[in-house]
């Protein structure tokens, strides 16, 4: 299962857990399954079926432009980070 790292400001949703193992082959499945286990994550992370514009997703250390569509491996690490505004 992928290891999902929970940002400190979202850990009240995850009962204080900073890392959670979640099943899922795509970011969309990860978000859905995370929300099933800890309700509220889907609203915090996504809007209209897409990752919110001010949040980015990193899979195995690399920020993906594909958002919900990005593939996630069985041993992947998933991080939710602030989006790199300012024209990175």
């Amino acid at each position: 299962m992928a290891m999902v790292f929970i940002p400190s400001l979202m850990q009240k949703l995850s009962e204080g857990n900073s890392k959670i193992e979640i099943e899922g082959g795509t970011v969309r499945q990860i978000v859905n399954n995370l929300d099933a286990q800890y309700p509220g994550f889907k609203d915090r992370l996504s809007e209209g079926g897409r990752i919110k514009g001010n949040i980015s997703v990193a899979i195995d250390g690399e920020i993906t432009p594909l958002g919900m569509l990005e593939k996630v491996g069985a041993d992947s690490e998933v991080h939710f980070l602030p989006a790199l505004g300012g024209g990175a």
Partner: peptide, 10 residues
């Protein structure tokens, strides 16, 4: 809104 603080912090 939209400074480069996200990248700076990372």
């Amino acid at each position: 809104p939209g400074s480069p603080v996200g990248a700076g912090a990372m």
